[in-house]
Design a protein around this nucleic acid. Sequence first.
DNA 1: GGTCACGGGATTGTGCACAAAACGCGCCAG
DNA 2: CTGGCGCGTTTTGTGCACAATCCCGTGACC
Lengths: 250, 250
Amino acid sequence: MKTAPTAAPPRRASRGRSGAEARIVQSIGEAIADRRLPPGTKLAEESLAQVFGVSRERVRKVLLLLAQRRVVTLIPNRGAFVAKPTAREAREVFEARRVIERAIMETLDRLARPLPPGVLARLNEHRAREEAAEAAGDRKALIRLSGQFHLLLAEFAGNATLAGILGDLIDRSGLAIAAFERRSSHSCSAEDHRRLIDALADPGPDRNRAGEAVRLMMEHLDTIERQLDLEAKPEPLIDLKSVFAGADGE
Amino acid sequence: MKTAPTAAPPRRASRGRSGAEARIVQSIGEAIADRRLPPGTKLAEESLAQVFGVSRERVRKVLLLLAQRRVVTLIPNRGAFVAKPTAREAREVFEARRVIERAIMETLDRLARPLPPGVLARLNEHRAREEAAEAAGDRKALIRLSGQFHLLLAEFAGNATLAGILGDLIDRSGLAIAAFERRSSHSCSAEDHRRLIDALADPGPDRNRAGEAVRLMMEHLDTIERQLDLEAKPEPLIDLKSVFAGADGE
DNA sequence: GGTCACGGGATTGTGCACAAAACGCGCCAG
DNA sequence: CTGGCGCGTTTTGTGCACAATCCCGTGACC
């Protein structure tokens, strides 16, 4: 057989699928992000195909893509389900985010002030959007914007590769939040984001500017993770034998 | 339509495809890693299907997977090609590796010494393997082992998510090396790895143990990147108009 | 002599139809 | 009444065949 040795190396778009596909990926991705599709939900191929008005194999391809990004879980002969991270995986995702976002904030912190006008403008624009969503009590929008904020910072840091990785991690942390959030409070971080923008835009006169934004980001991520209930939550089926051990009559 | 709200959330294998698929992915991945398939090589579906004795759609799925990992580039109606990173992308990949591997080394460095016997054993086992490959002059094996070494460290750090991300980055940096390596030297890092293992196993008596392994890793990655020729290499086709501008008769 | 246009061949993309597997339900036995 | 078994239906998996697109070689025209 002949494998063309070093054929013409073409350069063109890498992400752009046939459009409709990307649209479905994003649509499902957002639905998962804002909890309309909670972890564990079955994603039947036929249903999705009808909803989006495409053929089943198109849906199949999308599902394969999302599975690769760990947003859905593919079980052979069973189908696709919205991924339900384990507590361990949730911790790992947040740890990974800390690693990457610390690096991003350090890069941003090293940027010359004042920030480039385009950057500052987009930051403020985003801040306005978050405040609007907050005022309107639009929780779904707030969640989506919160993710976009972190991605925006990654973009400003200038490393598209890291930004792409972080994008996946953000999606997965959204999943983790959906799976492990407590019934109780969560300030949803709009205030945290405000402070972060402030620290980036103007580190202050004499405060130890060094790493202020970094510190804020680490605290921000810690806050989010701490709002989750990641204690040992063995699956119900596992508990049965220990719960009822020697207590059949009790 | 009815989307089962919070259906039974099953838990089972997430990675395990039908086996044959994973085998093909790994096979192609390794072929790319050790330069048997240089960047730009066309990967015709039919040929691959015959080589691996599977149907074309199976190959198609594998190609889609590899494309998601940025190891191959999919061009609509043109086919699949071994990815040829741009210089910018290569720099980004190495930057990302520095970010992640620094975190990994810091975690490892915080580990109590002496290292757990299992860890030390596998480290030494790997060292032996690399030395054997080095002695035998087996370049392909050395490349593969070099990647495995970094992945091994990530594994010891205990974060499977980060390890998975790093795995992709290692594959892509292999691609970058294939695309940009200079004709000249490269000590292939076996010595660097030895020193890294030593620093991890025994930081030394009074040396500033703090961060010694981290420092070595950063230097190691810098060394690799510096051996590449990442200077501006505009594509030939772009140069045409500037090269021949007003010089038709010369 | 060079450039453009067209057509053959090959390769990728897509839908369809069938095969395999799993789930749910009902039936039967204990 | 409870537990197990077996069948039917639904859903997923796979291969095939056709349609669309692109590359390349040939020929005509300027």
